[in-house]
Structure formats: structure tokens, C-alpha cells
Computed example of a mutant assay.
Amino acid sequence: MYAEWPSTLPHVIAWRSTVPPGTPPKRILPDGCLDVIWQDGRVFVAGPDTTAQLAAVPPHSRLFAVRFADGVGPSVLGVPADELTDRRVPFDALFSPAETRRLAEAGDPLAALEAFTLRRRHRPDRAMVALAAGARAGAPIGAIAESCGLSARHLHRRCTAAFGYGPKTLAKIMRMQRAVAMARRGRPFADVSVAAGYADQAHLARDVRALAGVPLSRLVR
């Protein structure tokens, strides 16, 4: 069973999961975020992914996590996102043994994760928040850069540090997320390709397979 909800902290999603016996590996799609995850007393950081990851979790496992959106994660963790891209990093590789024990041994892991975030959070980078919002809405990257007063080169550097990859990759991932969400609501794939901003249905199919590793039809099933 999986559930997620907005944290009391801005730009943060809280989630939890329990794994019944017989649960197949879960396909986790890239989303431009990074997570700090407590799993059965072990704590690790899941960096931003460029392609889907298959997570095989032992039966009866419990997971609690905070997911950082809008590029705020690196300021909490003190590490640029591109150092974590496509990686799963033990928490104690980034933080002290005392900080790690505080989370790993917490009676309420989610409360401990949110308290950790609250202690370390900084004011979000408004340009990166705007970039994320624009990418989710399908706005052209050039227009986003101009509205933020950033050159293309400066935007790329800031985006890579905040999200783990450049703005074009971020926009492609957000477009795929929009397309999958529409398709899961039952919209025909041809309509999805137009509404999500693809050139045609073949373009939609190529991008989803490249990012998710499987066809859109399988994700919808």
C-alpha cells in the first residue's frame, strides 16, 4: 500500500509504503525530485533519476520518506543534485553517525524526516521554483529563462545543481509525467500526444519508452 500527501513544509511531499507478500518490483518513473527514505531502519537518499528504476523491496517492508520537489533538496542535503543523479546513497555517507542514528532509530520515522528537513531547509531558489512550474506546464525553456532573468548557460548550470540534469531533460521528464497522468485517466493516446506537447503519437511513444523503459500502454495497465 502506497500513500502520499503534501508535507506541512513547502515544496515537500511526504509518503509511506508497506509491501505485501508477492508484490512485484515497482517501476519508479523519473520526476525531477529526490527523496530521503527510511526503510526498515535503514536511511538513504534516492537521487533524481534520468530513467525509470525498478525497486524490488522485501515483503513486509515499511518505508517512510520525504520527497523534495522544485529543486529544494540540494539545499537541505548540502549536496548538488547532479552528484546524486541516478544514485542511491546511504545517509551516513552524507551526514554524521549521530544524525543518521536519529533518523534510523526514530519511533516515528516520518516525523523525524520532517524535523530533519525543517532544521536544514533554506529559502527556496525562486528561479528554480519557477523553472519547475514552467516545465510542468510545458512552457518553453527559453521563455522561462527570460522570465527569470537568466541566460541559457546560467539557467543550465543552476538547473543541473538543483535538479540533477539540465532544463531540456527536466522539461522532457515533466512532459512524460503529464502524458502518463493523462493516459491513466483514460484519454486516448492520440489526444495525449497533442495535449502533452508531442509532435505526434510516435514521438510520445519514443519518449515514454526511452524514459520509462516500457511502452505507455504497459504503464497504463
Score class of each variant (00 low, 15 high):
V36Q: 00
P10N: 12
L113E: 06
A183C: 01
G186T: 08
V76I: 15
A111Y: 02
P124G: 00
V192I: 03
R206I: 14
C148S: 12
D200C: 09
K172E: 15
P58T: 13
K168L: 15
D92L: 09
A93D: 15
E99C: 08
P21A: 15
A179V: 02
T18Q: 13
G134H: 14
H11G: 02
P90K: 09
P124N: 01
A46R: 07
P74E: 02
F44S: 07
G149R: 14
V214L: 08
R158E: 14
V66K: 06
L204P: 05
I141N: 13
G107P: 07
V57Y: 03
Q53Y: 08
G142F: 14
A145P: 13
A179E: 04
P167T: 15
Q39R: 12
L155G: 10
R102C: 09
R221H: 11
E83F: 05
A181G: 03
A210E: 14
T51W: 00
A69D: 11
T117Q: 05
A171K: 14
W38C: 03
R175K: 12
L29C: 00
A69Y: 05
D92I: 11
L204F: 05
E83K: 08
S75V: 00
R218Q: 05
P188Y: 04
R178C: 07
C159L: 12
A46L: 03
A104R: 13
P6Q: 04
R121E: 12
P74Y: 01
A162H: 10
A104H: 07
E105T: 08
V192H: 03
A98N: 04
R120E: 12
E114S: 07
A199T: 05
E114L: 08
L29K: 05
D108T: 04
R42S: 04
R153L: 13
A179K: 02
A181F: 07
G134P: 13
R185Q: 10
G149I: 12
A162D: 06
I173R: 05
F68C: 01
V129T: 07
V220I: 11
A130V: 10
E99L: 14
S147M: 12
G186Q: 11
